[in-house]
């Protein structure tokens, strides 16, 4: 049931990305190119999405569970730190180089674009590098804690 809901949400999300033009890297780069022949369309994608999202999240935030009784897993307010900003900056550089962010790249993959496959494979490799680095960091701090308590 929850998998069905998630599939439907992914499908609708993907259709929204297609309709909006976000799946087309040339259009995304036209939006990011302020000094060129600027195409402001994608600002309206965000405006449309946030207009609906703000209502939905305000409604969800007042509930203890979802409509089907699942627990709400909303992120807690975290710190604004170097990880957040540097990570987001690195993401923005990649976005500006290719014109792809994660969702549109997966949709373009579904449209059988071979170049999207190259991007998605590299993106997954990048995410895996993060996982390996995080595990190494966790093991390192475990070892330090064990060392200090011994």
């Amino acid at each position: 049931m929850y998998a069905c809901g998630a599939f439907l949400a992914g499908l609708v999300f993907g259709v929204g990305l297609l309709v909006s033009g976000m799946v087309n890297p040339a259009k995304v780069l036209g939006f990011l190119d302020l000094a060129g022949p600027w195409d402001p369309s994608l600002a309206l994608v965000m405006a449309g999405a946030v207009a609906v999202g703000a209502v939905a999240f305000a409604f969800a935030g007042r509930r203890a569970a979802t409509l089907l009784g699942a627990p709400l897993s909303l992120p807690k307010a975290g710190r604004i730190d170097g990880r957040l900003v540097l990570g987001s900056l690195a993401f923005g550089v990649g976005w500006g180089l290719a014109g792809f962010c994660p969702g549109p790249a997966l949709v373009a993959l579904g449209a059988a674009k071979v170049k999207a496959l190259a991007f998605v494979a590299a993106m997954l490799a990048g995410m895996l590098i993060f996982e390996v680095a995080e595990r190494a960091r966790a093991n390192g701090s475990d070892a330090r804690q064990t060392g200090s308590s011994a």
Binding site: Y2, G5, A6, L8, A9, G10, V12, F13, V15, G16, L17, L18, V19, S20, G21, M22, S41, L42, A43, L44, V45, M46, A47, G48, A49, V50, A51, V52, G53, V55, A56, F57, F59, A60, A65, T66, L67, L68, A70, P71, L72, S73, L74
Partner: peptide
């Protein structure tokens, strides 16, 4: 198309939070 696509994206996000949390 940009604004309508954005609204559809918002609906999908609403669906995922209201069904799956």
């Amino acid at each position: 198309s940009a604004a309508i696509g954005g609204v559809i994206i918002g609906v999908a996000a609403a669906l995922l939070v209201l069904v799956n949390g």
